[in-house]
């Protein structure tokens, strides 16, 4: 394959007009997931839980693979896997240190189980691969329904917990003095996170959830510390990545995840660049002020 062939495989827009209407379900699903990922990502960053997201994703993958093997709904399998994993983490690993070692133990176990189930599975191999690296090409109306319901649950729960969860995340001492039930809130957040992870897996796959749940929020936090703006930007970044990724992947034969992860990575780079330039300007202004 020479370069131009690769190029036309990666960016192909043949029959675009005909394909577009067929994937409206996928686009809606993508937009919903962008919304969820952008919102929850803020808390994943605040609570320093990137590794937990990764761990939950692998167990969610095991659940999905099992569902595939026994021929039930894959979304449900993945939901069960990740909610179990996040409950376990929420209850056992309250302290960040414990949590990381528990995740380190659980993650390879989950991944191994998932691989076992996939190896036993006799069906189409595209389905297997999709769980790890993403597929959204054909979201049917039933799946869209499940995704939408779960997304709404996640968003409502997040909005309800927003202030106290922010409080216990940034300022645990004062929050405790204020009587906020930190332990219960943390477990509740883990369950919500589990749901969000399971949903994201449907788009970008278990290996790449971080691109949806971390990167957009991390990028937004780079450029602003205004909380409202942070959430808005994070959601905008996540939606751009997913919907943009789906649109770019449409006509080609490649999975959508490389498009999604690349867009979200580029956004992150741009944000870092903006932050770097701003800090440099601030610094030189300070120097000038000192010199004057």
């Amino acid at each position: 394959m020479d370069l131009s062939e690769i190029w036309s495989t990666v960016f192909s827009f043949e029959d675009y007009a005909e394909i577009l209407p067929l994937v409206s379900n996928s686009l809606i699903a993508g937009a919903l997931l962008g919304l969820v990922g952008g919102m929850i990502g803020i808390f994943v960053m605040l609570r320093d839980m990137a590794f937990a997201v990764h761990g939950i994703a692998e167990l969610s993958f095991a659940g999905a693979a099992f569902a595939l093997l026994i021929g039930t709904n894959v979304v449900v399998g993945s939901l069960v896997g990740s909610v179990l994993a996040s409950l376990l983490l929420g209850i056992m690993g309250a302290a960040a240190k414990d949590r990381n070692s528990i995740i380190g133990v659980l993650m390879p176990f989950g991944l191994g189980l998932g691989i076992l189930f996939l190896a036993l599975y006799q069906g189409r191999s595209a389905n297997k691969f999709g769980l790890l690296t993403g597929q959204i090409v054909a979201v049917d109306t039933v799946q869209l329904g499940v995704l939408a319901v779960c997304s709404v649950i996640v968003m409502v729960a997040l909005v309800a917990m927003w202030r106290p969860l922010t409080f216990i995340s940034v300022d645990p001492a004062v929050a405790a003095a204020r009587g906020i039930p930190a332990a219960r809130l943390s477990v509740a957040f883990m369950v919500v996170l589990g749901l969000a992870v399971a949903l994201s897996i449907q788009v970008v796959g278990a290996l790449l959830v971080l691109a949806l749940l971390i990167t957009p929020a991390a990028a937004a936090i780079r450029v602003t510390s205004n909380p409202v703006l942070t959430v808005s930007l994070s959601v905008a970044f996540a939606m751009t990545s997913v919907v943009g990724g789906i649109l770019l992947a449409l006509a080609g034969s490649l999975p959508i995840s490389p498009y999604v992860t690349t867009i979200s990575f580029l956004i992150y780079l741009v944000c870092r660049l903006i932050a770097w330039r701003r800090d440099r300007v601030r610094h030189s202004e300070k120097m000038a002020a000192v010199a004057a």
Binding site: L46, V159, R163, T166, R178, P227
Partner: peptide
């Protein structure tokens, strides 16, 4: 990297225990 400004921290001290958004 805490995404809060000084004023947001003070605001949390006032109503951070309440449910929902402000």
């Amino acid at each position: 990297n805490t995404p809060l400004r000084a004023r947001d921290l003070v605001a949390l001290g006032i109503d951070g225990h309440k449910w929902g958004i402000r």
